[in-house]
Design a protein around this nucleic acid. Sequence first.
RNA 1: GCGAGCGUAGCUCAGUCUGGUAGAGCGUCACCUUGCCAAGGUGAAUGUCGAGGGUUCGAAUCCCUUCGCUCGCUCCA
Length: 598
Amino acid sequence: MAEPKENVLMEKIVSLCKRRGFVFQSSEIYGGINGFWDYGPLGAELKRNVKDVWWRTMVHQRDDVAGLEATIIMAPQIWRASGHVDTFSDPMCDCLLTKKRFRADQVDEQSGTAYHYTGAKDTVSGKEINETYSVLLAPGKPPESARKTATQFYQQRGLQNIELLGENTEKVEKTTRYNPENGSLLTPPVPFNLMFKTYVGPTATEADVAYLRPETAQAIFAQFKNVLETSRQQVPFGIAQVGKAFRNEVTPRNFTFRSREFEQMELEFFIKPDEAIEAIHGSVAKPTGPGHPGEPQPNWGWQLWHQYWVEERVRFYEGIGLSRDTLGFHIQTPEELAHYARATTDILFKFPFSKVDENGEMKGEELEGIAARSDFDLSQHQRFSGKSMGVFDEELRTGWAKLDDAKKADISKRYYEARLKYMLKTGVPQEKAEKEAKDNADGLAKGQYIPHVIEPSAGVDRLILGLITNAYSEVISTDDKGKTETRVIMKFHPRVAPYKVGVFPLLKNKPELVAKAKEVFNLLRPHALAFYDEAGAIGRRYARQDEAGTPFCVTIDFDTLGEKPELLNTVTVRHRDDGKQERMPISELLGWLLPKVR
RNA sequence: GCGAGCGUAGCUCAGUCUGGUAGAGCGUCACCUUGCCAAGGUGAAUGUCGAGGGUUCGAAUCCCUUCGCUCGCUCCA
């Protein structure tokens, strides 16, 4: 019921984005390209502000996070270690009758009699279709059931009174070419690679194949050791990166929400394994209730770190104008979790295209996932590269020495089991896995381990879309003549708003006003993005800035010039969201404005 | 990838059924005017009607192909 209205809202937002220069379709003059979007003047500022706030929050204002900017194309082995090459290259095929999609390697092998047809004819209209089709008949089933399926197939293609043509049969063994549910022929398997492929070097042979990164995270893991050694950080610490990633999505949808080229803001925060915490501190601190657990403590286990980062990230969203009630949360169930993940909490935003579930509740779409990924990623890179991803922990070594033998044995056993579980899951043979797990457990006793990781990973473009959606508001007013008009106000948080302040002379045909306005504009410009406008009536200029989301407008009027001497060198500051004005001296303007927009 | 719908000026849309060579409102720009919330006046620019092909004397309009957008299915590490 609410659906049509919501689509209207989405259409308005898309339309505004284009009209005001937030988002354009990529390559629009050539008809566009599916799944790619460009940011116009306002969108570019908005996006830059969001990334800046993230970087300041996650890197500059913390002691325990270092930055990284890695390449988009990396050694292809990285994507084997991460598992992307395997999970991305599934051949897929569709049932010709029901259109259901199958992974070609997951179709059960079947045997039976294949009924082939060269086509079909409509006995009334005489119309003929020459498309070939086949049905697999399981042993013991009557031939009529194969003919019935084939008839359905040709009915879908527009015939009514069907006469099947060219029937012939063939015994087949262990075929995967037919839909096990109905016997219908499947389309030929088509490889489904969701990674963008390219070639490094001019020869473009298979040996030169490389991929555009499908996520930024792996670069962080690959450079973990270098960052650790050059940043003078020690576990626990994080590496942050903002950058482009590429996925050849089957269906890009919902404006910029799912696009093929997108940007991520990711933190990989490395922590000690719980076993190490226990050895050092005697026990592992665990969550005691919901909410922010406060400043990080040395005895936190992975669960507290996970909770901490979820809450930190919510504070970030609140800080740029997405209040907690606009967000949703999804705690992934054990079935949903990737096999290496221990827990994942998604932070959601309710978009106009978000679905309402059977209980009438809208959960929203994912803006960010905060995953506890154990030591899977670094372990994989250690295994594939042959380079150690372990760290040495002095605290652990001294802590371990103080433990009694029973405690040592207990912790050692649990660490051994965790490592063994990882090895076996990733296909390491039993014997080798046991040996390596034992080596790992022995290493722990000497102060060595592979760090675990908590990964808050956010999509920039979907956040931008969320901010635009959240900011969008309409004011409908009726003038004296009874004409109604709708004004759009983009209520961005001042921190992310594209323009921070508009500067206007009240009238443009009074040179003194114009000169003074330009003076104020030049005063503000070096510190906060300002927009000067003298065209049209003052109300129109306010309205234009409302649509761009500019939180404040400064107007230079005759009082500024001293018409009322006590108001000399004061201006009016007009607030976007309520239209209210206040008067302040030009000399106080910057000091008033800057704290609000930073 | 499959199915359905849609694509005309910067935006919203009329015109498509019934082929005769493109319009409205808003916006934009210039000048005038305007003493605080899209006021008014004058003037101007902007469309190979998504693209390509076909039918026709003639195509925005009919047909085919293709690209894009929306929705449903599928996919989403």
